[in-house]
Design a protein around this nucleic acid. Structure first.
Lengths: 333, 333
DNA sequence: AACCACCAATGAAACGTTTCATCGCATGTG
DNA sequence: CACATGCGATGAAACGTTTCATTGGTGGTT
């Protein structure tokens, strides 16, 4: 068996309480005793049993991280950042996937909470989790809102707006938009921003306005490819010259669809993605996209969960247009 | 405060021991008492405190998963599979990144072990971890070996062999190979298999043999791009007509390099990747690659960690050649 | 010299479980 | 009818901490 604090105490000839106070750096212990205790501690290779500690303190150093799918590069990056910051503070990260399934989500959160985490960082899938489920610990929501909880996210509306703005300013008029699932608020906001910019354009240039073609699917590669094909199989004069998407994965799928149909990006088709996952700048052509500051998101989320002061209700970070190679002015035949 | 087992016992008019035995399904309790206890349990919303339980049992339901970088699609997929299987068995997964840094690895494992996990699934970075560090719990190593521990991995040598074999059989003679870091055993084996097939070819077709051009770097996109450029900036007659890589990420970087230099894949250059990450089949052209059966790897690793019977020392799974669009016969001008 | 204040260390209780030895009681046996 | 046999339930100990009320001792003040 591992040595316990009792062994240390006995061998050092002090009480367990004293050893405990040596361990808690900030307590007051006489110098010689502290030295002796510390000596025996690494003499017998004692390491505190975190379970005893947690039980006594009624809380752990564990942070629950619940994401739809760790395979999604955006969430992988989030997980990485959260884990980095957390472990720097001495916390560990418990990972759970929900697979975009509300039941699985409920189940996962349930067992996570059973482990009495110090806090929960949650990318919710259902927008109304069974009553205070997540209220049993400090919870911060990321990316998607959940009523009654602090939210850290990018200003999705602004992101959609930026995408439309960029394309319009390049001279595109026939725009397409590949949206995420209609059920998620994120999708709605991104699309909303996109549409809003177009509405403004309509006001200022009534003659030039063309209503956007909007299709809807999932956030993944495949959906981007399929919906892309759908948008692009039209006679050239009605086919969009530029398409914005709700995720980089969709955009990359779209890239593939365009190529399949013999369209060159950006010559024949401009594309704007969303997220700025690492792959976005490695794909061909490099993807122009709306960047989410993930590191900042992770930082704020963790701060909200661990910090002593309550996090403000909603933390909207500003997205940023990353101009790369997938956009150009429309070719004017 | 949350209700404890004592509250249940009191309210149900039985002893705590009895409640405990009700909770442990397989113990013997009279029917009426069981009913009464169960009734009060969800009357007062009691849920067992896992900390008390773990302390008593001196072990947790947590599995540590230590990977170099969760952002790497291969590890993300591994994490997903492990988490799925683990949560189905009632275990949770604690995630840690080592960033390919031996010191960080040591640190991470150290704190993970402090949490008394039921087991550890480890993708080691240093090939000799400080003496029995990982021996303090059931540990299974994945992807890369670590002396003294069970290993689940693909037969990397066979993978390299398959890649070379495929390219040779298409008619390629001037082959290139983009390897992973020379320090890792995986790299060595994949490359070894590749070279071995070429050596065999040399025996059988002495006249046709051309020594492969091998370069070495990291497993990531960027490395693939850089090393690719390096291999491809040669006069056409010495430039490889086909390149195999040690990871799909490298292959995708290479795809990019090739395009930058005006080479068409597979017309001017054939490429074989390694891993078969989801992206491999979505990139343009679809990547021919050596598939690792990740689900199988995850399953075996978890089994090794949780199963009662000792896992055999080494579990080598067979890789599989996935023929897609990035390979063709060399153009013979 | 007596007293007070203070500091360092102690001992025990408490956190919420599981388990094991014990006990009471009903049932069946001699 | 006395007695063994089991079975179901109990009570207490134990897991490894932290913390809090006590205690013992030292130095300073009157």
């Amino acid at each position: 068996m591992n040595p316990t604090i009792k062994d240390v105490a006995q061998r050092a000839g002090v009480s367990v309480g004293t050893v405990s106070r040596v361990l808690a750096k900030n307590k007051t212990v006489s110098e010689d005793i502290r030295a002796k205790v510390e000596a025996t501690i690494d003499a017998i290779g004692y390491r505190p049993n975190i379970l005893g500690r947690s039980l006594r303190l009624a809380k752990t150093d564990i942070i629950g991280l619940v994401v739809p799918d760790i395979t999604n590069p955006f969430f992988a990056e989030l997980a990485k950042q959260v884990e980095m910051l957390a472990s720097a503070e001495g916390y560990s990260v418990l990972l759970a996937n929900t697979h975009d399934d509300p039941d699985a989500e409920k189940q996962q959160i349930e067992t996570l909470l059973g482990r009495l985490p110090a806090g929960l960082i949650l990318v919710p899938v259902s927008n109304s989790l069974a009553d205070g489920l997540a209220s049993r610990t400090r919870t911060v929501t990321v990316d998607r809102p959940l009523s009654g909880h602090a939210l850290v996210s990018v200003d999705n509306r602004q992101g959609g707006y930026l995408a439309a703005d960029h394309l319009l300013s390049l001279g595109h008029r026939r725009l397409g938009y590949i949206s995420g699932p209609g059920t998620t608020e994120v999708s709605g906001e991104r699309r909303g921003g996109f549409v809003q910019r177009l509405a403004e354009f309509r006001k200022s240039h009534p003659g030039d306005y063309v209503p956007p073609q909007i299709v809807e699917g999932h956030f993944d590669y495949r959906s981007g490819e399929e919906l892309g094909k759908q948008l692009l199989t039209q006679p050239e004069k009605s086919r969009p010259t530029a398409i914005a998407t709700a995720s980089d994965q969709q955009a990359i799928g779209l890239l593939r669809a365009a190529d399949d149909m013999g369209l060159r990006v950006p010559n024949d088709l401009s594309i704007v993605g969303f997220d700025d996952i690492p792959l976005a700048s490695l794909v061909l052509p490099r993807l122009t996209t709306i960047r989410q500051p993930i590191d900042e998101i992770a930082r704020l989320a963790l701060e909200g969960v661990l910090g002593s002061h309550a996090l403000q209700e909603e933390y909207k970070l500003q997205p940023m247009l990353m101009k790369r190679g997938s956009c150009a002015a429309p070719s004017t035949p």
